[in-house]
Simulated scan of single mutants.
Amino acid sequence: MRKAVYLLLFLLISGLAWSQESQIISGKVLNDANDLPLENVNIVNLNQVIGTTTNKSGEFNVKAAVNDTLYFSYLGFKSIRVRVTNDWLKYGDIKVKMTELGIALEEVVVKPVQLTGYVEVDAKTIPIYDNYRYRIAGLGTGYEGGNKSPSAVNKVLSAVFNPADFLYNIFGKRPKQMKKLRQMKEDDEIRNLLSTKYDRETLMAVLQLERIDIDEILNNCSYSADFIRSASDLQILDAISECYDEYRVLNRRKDKG
Rank of each mutant, 00 (worst) to 15 (best):
E120R: 11
E21I: 02
G146D: 12
F72L: 12
M204I: 01
L207D: 05
Y223Q: 00
K111C: 02
N55W: 06
I13P: 06
L38R: 06
I13C: 11
V66T: 09
Y143C: 12
I217Y: 01
Y198T: 05
K56Q: 06
S195D: 00
K197T: 12
P163W: 03
C243R: 08
D187L: 02
G138Y: 05
R248A: 13
N42Y: 08
K124C: 12
K28P: 15
E186I: 09
N131V: 06
N61K: 08
Q20W: 12
F227Y: 14
E186A: 15
R182D: 00
L16E: 04
F161V: 07
D130P: 08
P37A: 10
A205F: 07
R191Y: 00
R229I: 13
D130I: 05
G58K: 00
K197D: 07
D93H: 12
S151F: 09
N154P: 01
Q48Y: 10
P150K: 13
V109N: 14
A152S: 07
I217M: 05
K180C: 01
S151L: 11
L89K: 15
D87L: 08
K56L: 11
Q208S: 04
N40V: 08
Q177V: 00
V156L: 09
A159M: 04
D188N: 04
L209I: 12
P127D: 14
M204H: 02
Y91V: 07
S195L: 00
